[in-house]
Amino acid sequence: PGLLEPTSCLVRVPKSASTLGIAIEGGANTRQPLPRIVTIQRGGSAHNCGQLKVGQVILEVNGVSLRGREHREAARLIAEAFKTKEKDYIDFLVTEFN
């Protein structure tokens, strides 16, 4: 009892600007095993959406888990999710729990 149950939530970020506008740190085999949001750029899609916060850890992108992926691979997955024309949004599964 008293232990916080790690909760995650799904955030849908519409591609409302030409950039996503987040900086991420972390990935497999580093001190930060899952990518964490360290910056949100004003005027980017993430800032416009208003639901992503600095410090949140990204568990999944469009349903694809980032667990066990190196930093560059995780970054590439997010970049491709933003570039693809198939969807006009990106779904992030995030948690405050680090």
Binding site: G21, I22, A23, I24, E25, R31, H71
Partner: peptide
């Protein structure tokens, strides 16, 4: 003595 596993810091990527 506690064996400390030191992992490297990660790089930061702006997306």
């Amino acid at each position: 003595r506690e064996k400390r596993l030191t992992l490297p810091p990660s790089e930061i990527t702006l997306l």
